[in-house]
Computed example of a mutant assay.
Amino acid sequence: MDRDASFQAFVDAHQRPLMRLAYLLTGEAHLAEDLLQSVLVRMIGRWAKLRHIDNLAAYARRTMVNQHISWRRRRGSGEVPSAEPPDRAYSPEDSAVLRIVLRQALMRLTPKQRAVIVLRFYEDRTERDVADLLGCSIGTVKSQAHHALARLRALAPELAPRLPVLDDDPAHVEGARR
């Protein structure tokens, strides 16, 4: 299989999950497309060396997370502070509204926290997998997940009942003792 055909086969097989990850990391369809495109451009340039890697999808995910974090460092958060929080004229049970609230809350996490939450809970990866993908220790993954979940609970209390509870979460352990 020639270079172009093998790369096209990789893209055909992995484009949807990579695009979904890009969207979850960026929170915007256009930025997600840009992120995925930049990762694929980087990969095709090195395809002769990369195609021999056992898990190219994992390599692409890690490259995407690193690229996203790098972009965020350069561009800043883009958050616009406001004096008053927005009025919440919706039912907390509305799943479409909860998805929007979750997306907005995710966008207020640090890029690394967001990557840990997306990889750990959305893609249902183990702490070891997330640590390997991000190039950090399992302790860092646990710490980032703990802080990110606490921040999500503070930013969007209506999501709290739906967020995962970590086994080592002091609030969870303390609540179990009562």
Rank of each mutant, 00 (worst) to 15 (best):
A5I: 03
A5N: 07
Q8L: 04
F10C: 01
V11W: 06
V11G: 02
Q15N: 02
R16W: 00
R16K: 05
L18G: 00
R20D: 08
Y23G: 06
L24I: 03
T26Q: 01
A29P: 01
L31T: 04
A32Q: 00
A32G: 12
D34Q: 11
L36A: 11
Q37T: 06
V39E: 02
V41Q: 15
R42C: 04
G45D: 04
G45Y: 05
R46D: 06
W47G: 08
L50W: 04
R51S: 09
H52C: 08
I53M: 14
D54R: 15
Y59N: 06
A60N: 03
A60S: 05
R61Y: 09
R62N: 09
T63V: 13
M64Q: 10
V65C: 10
V65Y: 01
V65W: 02
N66V: 09
N66E: 13
Q67R: 15
Q67H: 14
H68K: 13
H68N: 15
I69T: 14
S70H: 12
S70F: 06
W71T: 05
R72Q: 15
R73H: 12
S77Q: 15
G78C: 06
E79N: 12
V80D: 07
S82A: 13
A83G: 13
S91Q: 11
P92W: 12
P92N: 13
E93F: 06
